[in-house]
Every structure is written in structure tokens, then in C-alpha cells.
């Protein structure tokens, strides 16, 4: 089975993420750009939760 780990989160609201490295974006456009860049750099999957928080995941090693 494949287990994914959360590498980092990107969001517009500081309160949405705890115990996970979080990058705050100023607006939706910046959130999309940062998430895309992080996805490429970390070679992870970019997922978005119902509360708007973006998480970058990668298979656990």
C-alpha cells in the first residue's frame, strides 16, 4: 500500500494548519503559484481540502 506524507501546507489562513510547515499566501493567485512551484520542487502531489488549505504530499520513504 502507498502511504502519503504531508510535506508542507499552503494557505490563506494561519489558523488552518497546526504541526505542519505552512506557507501563507496573500491571495488565491499567489496560493496557486506557490503550490505549483512547491509541487514541482518537492516532486509531490498537490491536493486541496474543503477548507481551502493546499497540502503537498509525497509517498513515505
Amino acid at each position: 500500500m502507498r502511504n502519503n506524507h504531508i510535506l508542507i501546507a499552503v494557505g490563506l489562513n494561519r489558523d488552518l494548519a497546526e504541526n505542519v510547515p505552512l506557507i501563507l499566501a496573500e491571495n488565491e493567485e499567489q496560493l496557486q503559484t506557490i503550490s505549483s512551484e512547491l509541487g514541482r520542487i518537492l516532486e509531490g502531489n498537490v491536493c486541496r481540502l474543503a477548507n481551502g488549505l493546499v497540502i503537498i504530499t509525497a509517498p513515505g520513504r
Binding site: Q32, S35, S36, G39, V46, C47, R48, A50, I55
Partner: peptide
């Protein structure tokens, strides 16, 4: 549906990026 991609009614994956 939100950020989840479906084939007919089957959930397949979560896609976070709008361009994707």
C-alpha cells in the same frame, strides 16, 4: 466536485491546482 475529480460517480483523486 470542489477539488476532487470524478469519473461518472467514482472518486478518483484530489487535484489542488486550478491549471491541473
Amino acid at each position: 466536485r470542489n477539488h476532487n475529480v470524478y469519473v461518472n460517480d467514482i472518486y478518483v483523486a484530489n487535484i489542488g491546482l486550478e491549471v491541473m
